[in-house]
């Protein structure tokens, strides 16, 4: 059985220019999202379980991106996976079909040399993409798909000691859980809360340190849908602390109720120059302008 994990390291805190909405990522700070980490961990657990059952599962971790992704792949290699990187430039084009292209490139890498994965695991909710990649992958590979899973377990006995299918658990609203029977081959995406990722042993991390990661080139993109325009990215929302003081006072402060305000002053019909002088004098009187010079 061949289990493939698609990893998508991303910068969790990119710099978004508030004026131009230009997004700048730090290539070194790119790391696995919780979903990716859980996908890798679930793949390792599945492989462990199959190995105990006497099967010989293979594990392949694939990432599509620049050489900066190699660090994440080396950690996967140290955990016992084979690794492969599909070379893509670090800049994300503002392309409506970016994830479709990525799926195309990944599918090519996953099925190199006539190989065919039995299970492709992805992280749900990537940090820097809409999250349609697993669906595109399933479509391209002609696999079943089950998305947003919390856990995944083998079920039944299939050929070669592998399972016939998988049982996945998915969260629904109002606290319900849905148990899915997933036939193989399948593409599954995993939520970040599913499994705490393990760490690679030191000896394996040493062996993987500095080792070259095999690279394949992505096929040229053939866009079918063209992006006509793209809205600006927005800075991420940020939790702010609850306001101080009691609600009554805050409402008073916000509305200005009970505050003594100055009544409007009517200075009578004035010429433009006198009106400007009167306004400036008012602003000076209230410290909104520095005192008159000279």
């Amino acid at each position: 059985m061949l289990i493939s994990v698609v990893l998508a390291p991303a910068d969790p805190l990119p710099d978004v220019d508030p004026l131009t909405a230009e997004v700048r990522t730090d290539r070194r700070a790119c790391r696995l999202s919780p979903g990716d980490a859980a996908a890798l961990e679930l793949a390792l657990r599945l492989a462990d379980g199959l190995r105990e059952g006497g099967a010989a599962p293979r594990l392949l971790a694939v990432a599509a991106g620049p050489p900066g992704h190699d660090a994440a792949l080396r950690e996967a290699a140290a955990l016992g996976a084979g690794v492969l990187r599909v070379d893509r430039p670090p800049e994300r084009p503002e392309d409506a079909e970016y994830e479709a292209h990525t799926a195309e490139a990944l599918a090519g890498a996953l099925t190199r040399g006539g190989d065919r994965p039995d299970l492709v695991l992805c992280g749900a909710g990537p940090a820097d993409a809409p999250g349609a990649l697993p669906a595109f992958l399933a479509h391209r590979l002609g696999f079943a798909q089950a998305l947003g899973l919390l856990s995944l377990a083998p079920s039944g006995a299939g050929p070669g000691g592998g399972p016939a299918g998988l049982t996945g658990v998915r969260r629904l609203d109002r606290g319900r859980r849905e148990v899915l029977g997933v036939p193989l081959p399948a593409v599954c995406s995993v939520e970040g809360t599913g499994a705490e990722p393990r760490r690679a042993p030191l000896a394996a991390a040493l062996a993987a340190a500095g080792a070259p990661v095999p690279v394949v080139q992505a096929p040229a993109a053939r866009p079918r849908v063209r992006a006509v325009s793209v809205g600006p990215a927005r800075p991420r929302t940020r939790p702010v602390p609850p306001p101080q003081g009691d609600a009554h006072r805050r409402i008073l402060a916000l509305t200005g109720a009970l505050e003594r305000t100055e009544r409007p002053t009517v200075l009578g019909p004035l010429g433009a120059a006198e009106a400007a002088d009167a306004l400036l004098a008012f602003l000076r009187r209230h410290d909104h302008l520095p005192e008159a010079e000279g």
């Binding site: 505050e259 003594r260 209230h286």
Partner: peptide, 9 residues
């Protein structure tokens, strides 16, 4: 409120 006579800068 005495400060209302002269708003703070």
């Amino acid at each position: 409120m005495s400060s209302a006579d002269r708003p703070r800068p």
